[in-house]
């Protein structure tokens, strides 16, 4: 581990009343890597995501992004600093067209998002870039389709394109292949590999072959704690990991 650490947690704890969902998780995500967070159901993976993006408040511990303490920052702030998350179910704006979805992300940079007196024509300047992003994820011919009409795999691709529109330094992907058919999984994996160029990706993923395929580094969580960390090859041989997954000592 000699790469620069871009995202780090120290002793992260999240307690819901009596239940400790995340119990002292310390993570180090290297800049430019694809880092996977895996573990059985209820291990606290999504909770870690929610903590990292400040969607829920931290009980104890610290989160540092690019060396700065962001434990108390607001969720919208996190995104503006360059760390953008996706969600377990596809996060799109269903009644907007594909190109409008992307524009929502692009228009923030214009700084006119509170201007209720300005016409929406002022947003048309963004269309060229939006169409470019759609083409990048293979949705060029769907730019005027209302998103709700897109098949699930395409919605996830659109979501990814929307995230890319912000040009984030760190992308947090929550189960990007969840609920997808075989072909779609292959396409999304290729897409993630491509867009991860020059960025850092932290992903929660259940599909272990996707993890094996993509991840430079893997952290295994179980019952809110870090069970193992290393390359896929290392953690997949770890007896504690096998026990957590299969339920019997190896």
């Amino acid at each position: 581990m000699n790469g620069e650490c871009i995202l780090e947690t120290r002793g992260l704890v999240k307690q819901f009343n009596e239940f400790v969902a995340v119990n002292g998780v310390s993570l180090r995500v290297e800049r430019g890597s694809i880092h996977a967070l895996i573990g059985p159901n209820g291990a606290g993976k999504t909770t870690v995501f929610n903590l990292l993006t400040r969607f829920i408040p931290v009980t104890r511990g610290e989160i540092r992004f690019r060396g700065e303490d962001i434990t108390g920052a607001r969720p919208a702030d996190i995104a503006r600093r360059g760390m953008v998350r996706s969600f377990q179910v596809s996060a799109v704006f269903p009644a907007l067209t594909a190109v409008e979805n992307i524009r929502v992300a692009l228009q923030r940079k214009l700084g006119t998002s509170f201007h209720f007196w300005r016409t929406e024509r002022s947003l048309e300047a963004l269309d060229a870039r939006a169409v470019e992003l759609l083409a990048e994820v293979g949705l060029a011919e769907h730019s005027d389709t209302v998103t709700v009409e897109l098949p699930y795999g395409r919605k996830r691709a659109l979501e990814l394109a929307t995230t890319l529109a912000l040009d984030p330094e760190v992308m947090l992907l929550d189960e990007p292949t969840q609920g997808m058919g075989h072909e779609d999984v292959g396409r999304v994996v290729a897409l993630i590999r491509r867009v991860a160029q020059g960025r850092t990706v932290l992903m929660v993923e259940h599909n272990l072959s996707v993890v094996q395929d993509l991840a430079d580094r893997v952290t295994v969580l179980a019952r809110g704690q870090v069970l193992a960390e290393g390359s896929y090859g290392e953690v997949s041989k770890d007896p504690a990991v096998l026990e957590a997954y299969i339920g019997a000592p190896a």
Binding site: E100, S113, F114, E120
Partner: peptide, 9 residues
């Protein structure tokens, strides 16, 4: 407007 766009989102 750009604002309305965000509202819809």
């Amino acid at each position: 407007s750009p604002f309305g766009h965000v509202l819809r989102a």
